[in-house]
Amino acid sequence: MKKHGVIFLLVLCVAFMSFLGACKTEDKKENYETVPILEDVRPEEEKMNTFTDLNGNEVTYNMNTRRIVALSGAGDLVAFGIRPLAVSGSTTTSGYESFFKGVDLLDYNTPFNAEEILSYKPELILVYQNMEQDNIDKLTKIAPVIPLYRESFDFEVRLGYIGEIFGLEENAETLIEYAEQVKEAQLAKIEGMGIKDKTVSIFYYAQGVSIPPTDSWYFNKIIYDYLGMKRLPIAEEFLENADNPFTPISNESLRNYEGDIVIYADLSAAGLEPEIPEILQTNPGWKTLTAVRENRVGVIDATLYTEKDVLYLQAQYDGIIKAFEKATAK
């Protein structure tokens, strides 16, 4: 009996694993290539360089190397024309396939797998800004390690830094200018829509409706800082309490958090068309919002805003403007 039981369990587990393996992934949205297409103009020959990274550490590396593994900044790097051997698996590559042609996606990102990285025999490893020194030390045994700005919203800082690492200052200038142009163009659109002084409420759903924390999502920065939209004082208050983010707001009080424009951030769109889930559509608190009753809730794909890389900038702004258009439609 014991033997049969064990066999039964094993068969069950194997069946589940086979089923999981067979799960298909859906096709994602079409190409989205608006960023200037730049070339990696670095010469092929080795050129050793000593660089002081953002943590103040000196790193000596071959600045012309193509053997790069990037755990961060993939969207910035490919915009420069640089094609690393492998990049972080969490990178938003959907719609940008041509930029990532020949670039592998790492299976492990946080935590990384040193053996996987080693298998690429890299000459330079680019990591995220907040990587612990212990992990940097581990990776340094494989190849020189340079952390990139991940948290900074300033393209001049982010892109200028990458330009300096690879001696691609001209490419950096072009991209910085492009980022500024994109922002200016969107600001003009906001002016044209006549919504500049409106209050915007962004909600997401996880165990209930809540407000996405400021630093975690780039759309907050774009909407409230770059485009200059306003947040309701009650929402500011909610976010100021560090314990609040990710805590659902009572359905009874939700309407107090409603601004002139309501945006829903879909956390599970993952490159597909974002939508308001059924569980939210039937939520009694959500249904009390005026914007919901008037069918003018803009929806954005939150996963598009997890990275701040310049490659995705136009798509990020476009997603927001499209949501604003829906939210302000008469």
Partner: peptide
């Protein structure tokens, strides 16, 4: 493997906050 949808979140921590007539 498949990603967590909003609907599934209900089944990660018990809460009746969003109970509806249906």
């Amino acid at each position: 493997k498949e990603g967590l949808t909003s609907e599934m979140l209900k089944y990660t921590a018990g809460s009746s906050a969003n109970a509806i007539w249906m």
